[in-house]
Design a protein around this nucleic acid. Sequence first.
DNA 1: AAAACAGATATTGTCGACAATATAGGCGCT
DNA 2: AGCGCCTATATTGTCGACAATATCTGTTTT
Lengths: 239, 239
Amino acid sequence: MKITNPTQQAAVTTADKVFQQMQHAIVEGEIAAGSKISEPELAKRYQISRSTLREALNRLEKCHLIERKANVGSRVVTCTIEGLLELYITREALEGMACRQAAKNMSDEEILHMQDMLKIHAQTQDLKDGVAYYQEEGNLDFHYKVILGSHNKQLIELICGQLYHLVRMYRCQFGMHSPRASRAFDEHANIIQAIADRDGELAEMLMRRHIAASRKNIENKIAQEIAHKEQANIVLIKS
Amino acid sequence: MKITNPTQQAAVTTADKVFQQMQHAIVEGEIAAGSKISEPELAKRYQISRSTLREALNRLEKCHLIERKANVGSRVVTCTIEGLLELYITREALEGMACRQAAKNMSDEEILHMQDMLKIHAQTQDLKDGVAYYQEEGNLDFHYKVILGSHNKQLIELICGQLYHLVRMYRCQFGMHSPRASRAFDEHANIIQAIADRDGELAEMLMRRHIAASRKNIENKIAQEIAHKEQANIVLIKS
DNA sequence: AAAACAGATATTGTCGACAATATAGGCGCT
DNA sequence: AGCGCCTATATTGTCGACAATATCTGTTTT
């Protein structure tokens, strides 16, 4: 599962490399969410000086993966349900608008390319052996293509450069391999159709519903899990 | 004209102070847009070491006021018309959603407080002596209140913490003291009404139109200015 | 015994120096 | 004379040490 962010430029400086390593480590939970970051310890672990580490930390802060307090230190962000919902609300706004702009600004070639991509995903799904692929990489591919298609640097930077690392972190931490692949596939197809028709208003609405549906799916799932745990607790209390 | 960002916490470290100073300097054009940043020179000017300066630069980069390239250096962002339009598109998406959330999440007290604020602005406008005040501080006050009213940390951070510095920069650089104060006032009133009615859908739509109107107003103004300059050029050529 | 103060320890913020990389200017070559 | 290469200079990236601030621990005081 190698998902590379299209806006992420090649790491040239060592601070860049450490940043990317830590980014992966945080997203995948190797560095625990909510844990405090010890600069001396991490500097030793990555064999770099504290200055370089701090440079990396600054970039992690930029994509909202850690939080800093002056004279106190840095903490990895905690994954809360509220945070997840807020993130999806924000995505709905930004990606919705990106989709509207994509309908306006994408070139015909770009649209064709995206339609081709969808066909490949359809085959992959038919074969049923690449569901995980489709859900992870394919899904991201689709969203990235739409966002880049907006041709709006501000939107691209905000979504791809900042939000999506957090999105991936939540996906990993909450173990979300959502089982709504086939429905999502149809939604993707409809969105692409709206873009091809240059219907920005519809494209935005569909993208917003697509993301909102994903959010509601998560809400339900979490509600179920909580209900599960509470039932378990009741059993414990009774025994 | 002292506009303080509500999310901006008190500067405690020297890097913070330098960051704020440079922020103002860039927004108001004292440090020219598009100019290259010389670390040694600025470190001397602010009487700090390069490490501290770089810390400040990192924060400036976070709110999109400078751009860095590895092994090359930092530049102040350039204010282009495309950039301005992209910024407004992004605002439309984010503040629209923030407004929808505000209609959902603001407390009754908050709404009352905002209505009071509007009354004060109305008086100020009636007196006709504080037009500049209304346009600058009052306008920002209104938007800040709505954004904070969303109670969505993600949205608040993105808009208040990052985008609004750029917005202010564009306002200064392009000398925008838009003369649509009275219309904007009415629009504000309608938005607050929608929020008070807890009509999130309408509130979002009104906010989006409000920002889009502002954007179109700018587009027209710039188009006029260009026409003006070209006419001036023609005169020059003829002479 | 609990709270508050004081000192000890650890962590973060800042500094100046060195190493690596890019830019500018002069030299030779075609 | 124009182009490209190579050296010299300047700028950025990285390092280790010191200063300032916060945290922890043990003692004292009410």
